[in-house]
């Protein structure tokens, strides 16, 4: 009964959408990279760097949207590093990706200490505030859940639509998808596989960093160590769950977020008296693994994912 009450409450769904937002950005980013044929395991570190960069920019006096732009730019720089090593040089995407994660994380913590050597608790910024969309936010249940979010969340949903349109309705999207399916086909049509793949990784990394920035600029209002806390790895799974399609990936992100929002609330019900709270903490992950097992059987992996392409090689 208590669970049904939770599921029918607007605050639960509002929380789910809020928790889903950073995952949506980063999942889209990873999806773009993988659609072009590059696995980007730098995602976790790039999210950390984005979280810090956006927050730091705002803390040092820029506007919120400039902060988002700063985060994206920092992400794109790490994307440039990742794609330079993996695309023209053809290095192992696993090793480079994990290396970028380690580098981005450590560089961020280092930058934090350089910028704020004395503080014990990190300063707060004026984060994005909820913005009610007129009329729509008055719809019962749906209104407060979907249309009383911050503009940063709205941007996540808009981005899903934009990425979907670009991937499936434009020559650019076609070229990106083809680069992930058979780069030789792209080269044979006179296009540069290197440029397309690098471009996709750079843009994708920018989106990942925006996912990180959401944490410090919309979900919370400050930067903590460990605050990304594995969300990047979840996004890699969400790409698989979404079968490399933006719409399905959005669904997966919301589903995972709903599990997460649910477990927090279930901990406060009578159920929690008998069950250790760690079980609830595990729940979203266990349910995600189950969903992943069920969904990924029909998933359409890009055929050339993780296959380097060298022009002129036999």
């Amino acid at each position: 009964m208590e669970i049904i009450d939770i599921l029918l409450s607007a605050s639960f769904w509002a929380a789910a959408i809020r928790i889903a937002s950073p995952l949506i950005f980063a999942t889209l980013g990873e999806l773009i990279c993988e659609r072009a044929g590059v696995l980007n395991l730098g995602i976790e570190g790039i999210m950390v760097a984005g979280a810090f960069a956006g927050w730091m920019a705002v803390y040092s006096g820029t506007g919120l949207w400039i902060g988002v732009g700063t985060a994206m730019l920092v992400g794109m720089l790490f994307g440039l590093l990742h794609s330079t090593l993996t695309v023209p040089f053809g290095l192992s995407q696993h090793v480079v990706g994990l290396g970028v994660t380690l580098l981005a994380t450590s560089a961020t913590y280092y930058a934090y200490r350089l910028a704020l050597p004395e503080v014990t608790s990190p300063p707060k910024i004026q984060a994005f505030q909820p913005w009610d969309i007129p009329l729509l936010s008055d719809i019962p249940l749906l209104g407060p859940a979907l249309f009383s979010q911050t503009p940063f969340t709205y941007l996540a949903f808009i981005l899903v639509l934009v990425v979907s349109l670009v991937l499936y309705r434009t020559p650019l999207g076609l070229a990106v998808r083809a680069a992930g399916e058979n780069p030789a086909a792209v080269a044979a049509q006179g296009l540069s596989v290197t440029a397309i793949r690098m471009g996709a990784v750079i843009i994708g990394s920018g989106f990942m960093a925006m996912g990180g920035a959401f944490l410090t600029m919309s979900a919370f209002d400050s930067f903590f160590f460990e605050m990304v806390n594995g969300r990047g790895w979840i996004c890699i799974a969400l790409v698989v769950f979404g079968s490399w399609k933006p719409g399905k990936a959005l669904l997966g992100a919301v589903l995972f977020a709903a599990f997460d929002a649910l477990q927090i609330r279930v901990q406060q019900t009578s159920l929690a008296a008998d069950i250790p709270y760690q079980i609830f903490l595990m729940m979203p992950y266990i349910l995600s693994i189950l969903a992943l097992v069920l969904m990924s059987r029909r998933a359409q992996v890009p055929a050339a994912l993780m296959v380097p392409f060298n022009k002129g090689e036999r």
Binding site: P171, L172, L174, A178, A185, L191
Partner: peptide, 10 residues
């Protein structure tokens, strides 16, 4: 899709 790939400006 295979045929039109790369036939127009990206």
């Amino acid at each position: 899709e295979n045929i039109i790939l790369g036939t127009r400006s990206l």
